[in-house]
């Protein structure tokens, strides 16, 4: 009986993973295809790295990759700073007037259709430009601001959840020992929520990195992000170098996830070992 059940579990696992990862696997395999036609496998010359080589000679691709990276980095940093402040206010000052409304307002961009967010941001930027002459045209700056607007909502949720688990008496103890409120925040609260800030940063980075809809509304002619480039290329017909580009992106993301996983497991193991030491010392 246990044997049959474990076979069923294995099957379920295999199908689940196949469903999730076969498309990506197909894309990776085709990135080594020598044929110029994406759907035709050229068995004579494959596998080849020619599309990877071409990618690194392609100036527009490299330019938009750099732009996307820059926007994602600035966005993640900005979203984390604003998101931490908002989460702190929501979590620590429980009794202020309009708290519920404020909480709802900060997380609304998560459920708002992206088209609406994009459109309203576009209208705001145009109106601002006419009123005060800033931002002069649309480009990297407006994209970054737009990205912060929606990714901040996710950051707030992540950091607020972590803040809720931080014992309030830790902050009170620090204050009791003579630390002023701002110092308590930087010396006690911030180090304790650092893991959440780090994951919030990565989340905001990824959200910005692959956003297409909102970006299309607020980007200008001189600024094309990587998703925009991929999308416009695909509309003209899928070319094999896109497969190579996507494979590189998948590899980067996988490396990040694996590194984070290994780090977490190590941390957990060390914690368990320390707790055991303390227990042994006590008995």
């Amino acid at each position: 009986m246990p044997g049959r059940r474990s076979l069923f579990v294995l099957m379920a696992l295999a199908f689940g993973f196949a469903f999730l990862y076969l498309p990506i696997l197909a894309m990776i395999v085709y990135s080594f295809n020598a044929s110029r036609l994406v759907t035709v496998w050229d068995s004579a010359n494959s596998p080849t790295l020619m599309w990877y080589a071409e990618l690194f000679r392609n100036a527009p691709v490299l330019d938009s990759a750099r732009l996307s990276f820059r926007i994602a980095t600035v966005n993640a940093t900005g979203a984390v700073i604003l998101g931490t402040l908002a989460a702190f206010a929501l979590e620590r000052y429980r009794r202020f007037r309009g708290r519920a409304l404020f909480g709802l307002l900060t997380t609304a961009p998560m459920v708002l259709p992206e088209v609406i967010t994009g459109l309203s941001l576009l209208l705001l930027f145009v109106a601002l430009e006419q009123a005060i002459g800033w931002p002069g045209g649309r480009g990297a700056t407006t994209i970054t601001i737009a990205h912060i607007t929606f990714s901040m909502a996710y950051v707030i949720v992540v950091i607020q959840a972590r803040l809720a688990t931080v014992d309030r008496s830790l902050e009170e103890a620090a204050m009791d020992l003579g630390a002023r409120p701002w110092k308590v925040f930087f010396v006690i609260t911030l180090p304790l929520i650092m893991p959440a800030i780090a994951s919030g940063w990565v989340l905001a980075f990824i959200l910005s990195w692959d956003d297409l809809v909102i970006t299309s509304f607020v980007s200008g002619p001189s600024s094309t992000t990587l998703p925009q480039l991929v999308f416009s290329k695909v509309r003209l017909g899928v070319s094999p170098d896109i497969n190579a580009l996507a494979t590189i992106l998948v590899l980067i993301v996988t490396a990040c996830v694996v590194a984070a996983g290994v780090y977490m497991v190590r941390l957990e193991k060390r914690r368990a070992r320390d707790a055991q030491t303390a227990f042994d010392a006590a008995t």
């Binding site: 914690r271 320390d274 707790a275 030491t277 303390a278 227990f279 010392a281 006590a282």
Partner: peptide, 9 residues
């Protein structure tokens, strides 16, 4: 670190 101590400590 605190988590390496027993309750009494």
């Amino acid at each position: 670190k605190p988590h390496q101590l027993s309750g009494g400590q």
